[in-house]
Design a protein around this nucleic acid. Structure first.
Lengths: 152, 152
DNA sequence: GTAAAACCTCAACTTAACTTTAGGTCAACA
DNA sequence: TGTTGACCTAAAGTTAAGTTGAGGTTTTAC
């Protein structure tokens, strides 16, 4: 039993993490320089990862799919404890923020789709009061707010 | 009447396009080098734009909000006619593709949100059969497919 | 008719997120 | 015990999407 546990808690090499997470070794090095992940070193100066790094990398990738820049992901990840392996509650708190982001993004995309359908797709080429003109329709994590769309 | 029409069809300078579209002059130059927009030159070699360039720029920005890279936007825009000012039908055809993209993106985001809610947010930290492991869940225009998410 | 504002080109710089290369070290195994 | 594959660092290169700067020309406005 103890043997079994220690097998499963044996730290991972960078190559193993790369293979299991699907990112390149160079990317893991890169993430480490950015402070997104952390490692211990063995006697020969090689990286050894705790297994929860896999979840961290997974979350990085999920966040990237949401268009969140690495710097912001780093800030979010830094709320995780460094002194112990994150618990379910730790992860939950982290993902809650991104769920709100996602909800907002979905809503904005939906609005965009409706506008595209109702405005560009239709005959309102003069765009007298096209909803796409709305300058306050921002797409959160993307940063850039919509700009004024003039009549043509 | 004729005076009025010619006023409205007078070509725009790059500064006017910049102001009315909300993008920088340098960006318009840049878009032109990428073939995303086109201009005529006056006697003094200055750019003069047809008014429909505003719609083109607007569409570029909408597409960018969807995460579509400029190169792909260029391909889509190249389906517009160069020999005449695009009609409503021309624009409609173009936007139809992006509506499908949008639909797909919205669906994927929704799925992602549900997974985040149901998986990372919950206690399934061992992730034996976590939906986020699903390697076939791609985010179209983003290019990168989801990678395998290993158990930790 | 002249001065300021707007325009021109071309090249170099910027940021994000990586990848590649070079030159060396460590570890697994036959 | 040697050699091959995995690792190490540091620096340079890459792509996307622009921005900035230098040096010169055109337009516009008084």
């Amino acid at each position: 039993m103890d043997t079994h546990r220690s097998f499963h808690e044996r730290p991972l090499t960078v190559g193993q993490v790369a293979e299991r997470s699907g990112v390149a070794v160079s990317t893991l090095h890169f993430y480490e320089t950015k402070g997104l992940i952390h490692s211990q070193r063995n006697a020969g100066n090689q990286r050894r990862y705790r297994r929860d790094v896999l979840r961290r990398v997974a979350l990085i990738k999920v966040a990237q799919r949401l268009g969140i820049p690495l710097a912001d992901i780093g800030v979010a990840l830094s709320t995780l404890p460094c002194d112990h392996i994150p618990t379910a509650a730790d992860w939950q708190q982290l993902s809650a923020q991104w769920q709100r982001d996602l909800d907002a993004r979905i809503e904005q995309m939906t609005r965009l789709r409706d506008q595209l359908t109702g405005c560009i797709g239709c005959g309102c080429l003069s765009m007298q009061d096209c909803p796409l003109r709305n300058p306050s329709d921002e797409l959160g994590a993307q940063g850039a707010g919509a700009r004024l769309l003039e009549t043509d």
